[in-house]
């Protein structure tokens, strides 16, 4: 499960940086907004990966499985507050 999540995050980071085919929208999304979204997504994903490793590290020292650490955490969502 954790490995799968890690893979998912890594794939997501890769996707952030790799260029792909253009998309066409009903609305002009604004170049500033697009670049900003890729930055925000990159940060969110990077934080997700860090969090994952943090739980694995905690699990290693506490003797719990990283899976249960993850589900114990009430703050499982990535923090993105003001």
């Amino acid at each position: 499960m954790v490995v799968k999540k890690g893979l998912q995050f890594s794939a997501a980071i890769l996707a952030c940086t790799v260029l792909a085919a253009p998309s066409h929208a009903y609305l002009d999304p604004g170049t500033g907004s697009i670049i900003l979204q890729s930055i925000l997504a990159g940060i969110a994903v990077a934080m997700g990966v860090l969090r994952l490793y943090w739980y694995r590290l905690k699990a290693f020292f506490s003797g719990k499985t990283s899976e249960s650490e993850l589900s114990d955490s009430k703050d499982a969502e990535i923090r993105n507050e003001s």
Partner: peptide, 10 residues
């Protein structure tokens, strides 16, 4: 910018 992709998780 047009060519970038946003992963679903992002």
């Amino acid at each position: 910018a047009k060519a970038r992709k946003l992963p679903r998780i992002g």
